[in-house]
Design a protein around this nucleic acid. Sequence first.
DNA 1: ATTGAAACTTGATCGTT
DNA 2: AACGATCAAGTTTCAAT
Lengths: 174, 174
Amino acid sequence: MSTLDRRDIDILFAIANNHTMSTETIHEVTDIPKSTVHYRIQSLKDGGVIVNDLCELAREKIGLEITVISEVWAEYGEGYHEEIGEKLSDIEGVNQVYFTMGDTDFVVIARLTSRDMVEKLVEDYESIEEIRRTSSKFAITTIKETVGVSTLRDYDVETVRAAQGLSEDGEDGG
Amino acid sequence: MSTLDRRDIDILFAIANNHTMSTETIHEVTDIPKSTVHYRIQSLKDGGVIVNDLCELAREKIGLEITVISEVWAEYGEGYHEEIGEKLSDIEGVNQVYFTMGDTDFVVIARLTSRDMVEKLVEDYESIEEIRRTSSKFAITTIKETVGVSTLRDYDVETVRAAQGLSEDGEDGG
DNA sequence: ATTGAAACTTGATCGTT
DNA sequence: AACGATCAAGTTTCAAT
């Protein structure tokens, strides 16, 4: 499965907007027959579009109240970013690592439970030899955070359809 | 539900590590009886710890290939950050908005489908009056991204337990 | 790839401790 | 709050198109 068709996208948006993967519910809201919903979701899983079956958590309720955003500058070298990226990813509490274009080499986002954990993060940065410099800031508030299918709620259906080469009328891209 | 006990945490980690919310599967891997797993998950939902039933997507497969990380500087004023934060959140494609301490006021992460959408993002920034300056960079690679219960995979069970006031032995915090 | 109907598995409930 | 047994409900399969 390389591109998605109109129906795949409808199903994904239904999942995002109804907060559920339930075949029954998706059938009810989309009017697509149960067995077809099942078939499609299975195809999306097989095609690697849906990679995980999960739920979202209220981070603060499990104690991950501190958010740290760091910029990281590192030494250049052959394939260095993969190696350093892995090292950054392995630090406890690090949830996002981006290798970036521009003035910084990496942007790292970590959720931590305590001041001690923040200190440990900084120490872990320092223990990575190739890292030249880091600059971290705290998030006072997380105003928005949607990653997963919920991400789809941030888009117009038409935008996603267009990304799959589907025009506004009923043309098919799958 | 204010704090979680050992069993809640075990169930959440089981969900994270087995990529499923299935009562049956969690029962199998944890040895906690089905009906108890059901009862606990229900409590976690009622308590607002589990906020959403979802799945993770391969973003690139739905065309959200471009990641932009922006720093935003804004005018100060009474409750200004909530208002501006909302406006930033409403921009199509914006997935994460953090109100920060330090040299910048906001950090914004957006996933976009095209160059056109990047231009639109910048225009949308400019259309917000209170915004003084923005600085954006592209992520070349997303090395790591885990938000949701999958986030738990980034932590030691002990760290999360400690955040709930649970010691290493069998003491209960819920 | 789609579907209705059948078969089966599982989630939800209830009563007891 | 925990849990075994029960039942309703949903998921998955099947055969036909």
